[in-house]
Design a protein around this nucleic acid. Sequence first.
DNA 1: CATGAATGAGCTTTCATTCAT
DNA 2: AATGAATGAAAGCTCATTCAT
Lengths: 208, 208, 208, 208
Amino acid sequence: MTVPDAPATTAAPRTARGERTATSLRAAAREVFADVGYAAARVEDVVAAAGVSHGTFYTYFENKAAVLDALVDETATALLGVAEEPWEGEDVEATLEAVIGRFVDLILRDAAVIATWLEASAHEPYFRERLRGVRERVARQVAGHIAPIARTGHDPEVVAGALVAMVEGYATRGLMTADATDRRAAVRTLARLWAGGLHHVAEGRGAP
Amino acid sequence: MTVPDAPATTAAPRTARGERTATSLRAAAREVFADVGYAAARVEDVVAAAGVSHGTFYTYFENKAAVLDALVDETATALLGVAEEPWEGEDVEATLEAVIGRFVDLILRDAAVIATWLEASAHEPYFRERLRGVRERVARQVAGHIAPIARTGHDPEVVAGALVAMVEGYATRGLMTADATDRRAAVRTLARLWAGGLHHVAEGRGAP
Amino acid sequence: MTVPDAPATTAAPRTARGERTATSLRAAAREVFADVGYAAARVEDVVAAAGVSHGTFYTYFENKAAVLDALVDETATALLGVAEEPWEGEDVEATLEAVIGRFVDLILRDAAVIATWLEASAHEPYFRERLRGVRERVARQVAGHIAPIARTGHDPEVVAGALVAMVEGYATRGLMTADATDRRAAVRTLARLWAGGLHHVAEGRGAP
Amino acid sequence: MTVPDAPATTAAPRTARGERTATSLRAAAREVFADVGYAAARVEDVVAAAGVSHGTFYTYFENKAAVLDALVDETATALLGVAEEPWEGEDVEATLEAVIGRFVDLILRDAAVIATWLEASAHEPYFRERLRGVRERVARQVAGHIAPIARTGHDPEVVAGALVAMVEGYATRGLMTADATDRRAAVRTLARLWAGGLHHVAEGRGAP
DNA sequence: CATGAATGAGCTTTCATTCAT
DNA sequence: AATGAATGAAAGCTCATTCAT
């Protein structure tokens, strides 16, 4: 299977000043993507937001895709980090609530990057492939955790995929911008749905 | 709240020949969007696929957004149709399986249009608003159906939103391209997750 | 041996109007190349000279290399045509004079294209390869004609290459812009040099 | 006649270290020009090959033209040096062989610089003028030598120009990259062509 | 209605050159 | 002297849209 070429980042900055510039370009890109999305974002907008000249952008990134890739790196790392944390808690439901809460917090924090990533996936194979890879690894981690709970005829990968889709979908849909209390309540509801679903699946009724 | 301007379709064709041309343009656009996404699709690609000349496109659609809008019309209508069908079935789980199955079938049938719609949502307010509207109406329908089942402290809109997100997310993620048997099994798993989740939520434990 | 990619010409014009536009673009390019050379020529200059808009250029040519390639086509065809004409004449020297005269006339007529071709050869492998190919074919033709005259130890390919280099070099060096009389005299001198050189070579003295 | 401005070299380096840097920049430029030609060569390529930083280039040369000019200086000096050497030898043919051999050796040694010079001549008046000047001086020297041999109606400048064009053309055309034996044979053939041509011209037949 | 040539705004990208450190 | 980040003036090229035929 051929992996599409990565949008190569240009040589890393060698001085502190360069580091600062690269960072401010990333921050600017994050803002612009949040505002207008990937397709509508112009390099010009990014450099304007970063307060640097046009050419400077190309000192640090080969093109628009490369900046997004840098942002995606950060988000992907964070997501996989959360996925690999141990599931510990008093009981099943408290554990799920903690795990889901962590995911939701992260997704909300990086909502703009994720939305941009999704958009870019629609027409750039590289980002599609990267998204698939991260989702798969996350789902596999989750599947590993729930396998002991639900070991009936239902495929744990399917169960994990569905539950992950639920959380990601809910969080990225702008349904959760409300205050912290609402958010906590929503997370508790999601946890309860997972718990009930998993418990029910574990009973084995309805297995193929 | 201001609703973004719709991408006005040009006057409907009067003759049978015009009807055929418009149809083949829609079909061509669907193909092109499926292949390369919205941002990367060019009017030139569409007319080439439809086998008509460049200028003809503008006889039927004001611009690229207008063709997508026409495709979205069809899909939105179908989705709302499924959402409004009555929920009937022997027991809760069989009912859910039937309902979810209908959604999944539709989503898979129109997967390309939906993916394009999502992509366009990221930078065109009109499509974002339209997507939000349809999702809301679907979630509200589902909320109405599940309210009697789960009337505890958990907000039925949240529950419905989450369950819909799960199905939509799972179906649009390319996890279901397998054969009909796999698909049926996955649908059964999803139904079981819903059923368990709903049942558990109904118990009221964990309500805020 | 890999031949460098040709600068693909875009689809040929389908109407008379298109044909006219393409022709005037070629003529404009010839002028601009003659004035400022290949590297300094901008597409903008060409379209300005042709009196068409920027985008129109790209309807007919993929880039600057493609227009030059079109011009080179014409010149290469003409050169090979002259090379393949039979060598007839009263005696050796009259024959040579006629042949050299034909080459010189052609080279002077297409001097600007040839100069541009040479320039482009310096940094574009495609044009280098094309130039090498044409020179080789011309030299081979000439070698075929002189082989019977000079069949001593001297390699006819070397002899032919040298004589062709002499004519091409002399004609392209701007030494011949004078009037027709001067030109005729110079051609006669060249012919005499060839004749003498060939005759001397044929004597076999000095063969390796 | 106005002579185009020379690409002014910046003040000569004062220290030994500066001398080393300047030398390595010249060597790097020679390499880069040989690889990609003049138009495609970037200052960046040159500094990378020399292993110095971007800014350093401008300490020694005002711009790209200035480095080429420095290289051209060396070659021009060498060419004029060869042209001015006395023509001595047992007989005409041995003399010609020696002279042509010296030119060919030099041209092959500096082939890359000469090719670059030719390329730059196509769009930079300064280099065109310089090339014309050197060729003219060389041709005049040769004309002086052959005048006594061929004093018939044929213009000695034309004869000299043609013979020089033959040697330069043959040598710069990449036809001579083979081993030393082939090279010697080719030089002998060229000398024989000159000798024959000159002798024939001297006979006066065919004079205008 | 259909055609396809023409337009030109808009964006991307490159690279010579400058300058603070 | 040397470094390498920053600049910004060019070009290049694309493609939605218009319009004469």
